[in-house]
Amino acid sequence: MILGLETSCDETAAALVTADGEVRANVVASQAELHARYGGVVPEVASRRHLELVAPVVERALADAGAGLADVDAVAVTRGPGLIGALLVGLSAAKTLAWSRRLPLVPVDHLHGHVASLFLEPGSVEPPFLCLLATGGHTLLLDVQDRAGYRVVGTTLDDAAGEAFDKGARLLGLGYPGGAAIDRLARAGDPEAFSLPVARVPGFDFSFSGLKTALVYAVRALEAGELERRRADLAASYQRAIVRALVGRTRAAAEALGAQKVAVVGGVASNSELRESLADAELAPLALCTDNAAMIASAARFATAIPFPDYLALDAYASAA
């Protein structure tokens, strides 16, 4: 079995996955409530919490799988991209666990991890496919030809889609994290009530910063006290604009690349309107959309393992090279 660890942002996660991609345990300790009082993820707060949570989360994953360290064949861990201080907590723990039993260590690219959430059983998705990866930190279109990697086809030029949801929720007074709150409220609103434009940028890239500004102006234009009454309409219109941009670019890229299959992964893949709009796509299971360690262990099945003891001085990286 592969023991996976993930601490790149505000989830502390450990999982056990078999070589065949069967999930034996998948434990995620979310810090969302902790960061709500700051209106977003605070790196130092996240790192401090990871230190407290890693060992309990690993022990819980082993217990859930009815396994011990002796059953672990390799340790997989997110090496980057992410918050450097947060990554180093998980990486240090993973290196130490692997060292203690002379196991190989598999450093995993976080984005490859999200893609590999599609390679878990049951229902593993066979490449090639075009993959929309949308999270709080990234929005990418990836050409996935095999399970070992991907080629970036498009990316966001400013905010990530999940970030746009969070900022929009903050403007509407819905708190943090904002994606689920907007999704919920949007169901009661009219998505055509407000015209919120999404910038059209060349190629297959995305831009969401203008949309956020458009929402600021739409809120400002309201009469005093009107926000309460129009909040659902604003949420619905804002969500519609983000989903339209994501779906439009994904469809265009799929057509241009001749992709027969489209997949969606990452936290934003749990958005109900996006799932309905791309109903014909392969959608990551809801439990595997937000950051988790099962996807990291899954990616490790197709990544290069570093044999003991060559990983003892391995460092993390904050951003993709």
Binding site: R48, L51, A55, L88, V89, T96
Partner: peptide
């Protein structure tokens, strides 16, 4: 802070393993 955490997580993980 970062260095400190690396030592403590290493100690906690070693103690466990």
């Amino acid at each position: 802070y970062t260095g400190l955490r690396m030592g403590l997580i290493t100690a906690r993980t070693l103690a466990f393993a």
